[in-house]
């Protein structure tokens, strides 16, 4: 945990947070923007994990950028907010986020792996 490593994570996290907020400004509801950020972020982190080995690049783009782009707290609080309006939609939103996120992570890891290793 050197100062350079912390700086790389912070710089990536700042960009990822800015990208997540921009998505929030473009879409009508917060829940949709969080879902889209989380699923695309899981896909891209899969590609990065399978493809990039350089530690500093992984800290900047993985722990920082994609870690900051995706979020869990807004998923949890958004689910509770939806629950008060439409309980079924809240369950679909929470479970759907994780199911789609897992699928996106598997797809990203597959897309990022070298062609030979793909099974």
């Amino acid at each position: 945990m050197t100062p350079l490593r912390i700086l790389l994570v912070a710089a990536g996290g700042m960009l990822g947070t800015a990208a997540r907020m921009t998505l929030g400004l473009l879409l009508p509801t917060g829940e949709w923007s969080v879902l889209i950020a989380n699923v695309t972020g899981a896909l891209l982190l899969g590609v990065l994990t399978a493809r990039v080995n350089a530690a500093h690049l992984r800290l900047l783009l993985g722990t920082g950028l994609l870690g900051g782009f995706t979020t869990y707290s807004a998923l949890a609080v958004g689910t509770v907010t939806l629950w008060h309006e439409e309980p079924l939609l809240a369950v679909a939103y929470a479970a759907g986020s994780v199911v789609l996120g897992l699928g996106a992570a598997v797809l990203g890891l597959w897309l990022g792996s070298p062609r030979k290793a793909r099974a």
Binding site: G13, M14, G16, T17, R20, N38, G41, A42, L44, L45, G46, T49, G62, T63, L66, G67, G68, F69, T70, T71, Y72, S73, A74, L75, S97, V98, G101, L102, A104, A105, L109
Partner: peptide, 11 residues
């Protein structure tokens, strides 16, 4: 939002 993360949890 930056503190918590979803992508790493999935991976």
């Amino acid at each position: 939002g930056g503190y918590t993360t979803f992508s790493t949890a999935m991976i």
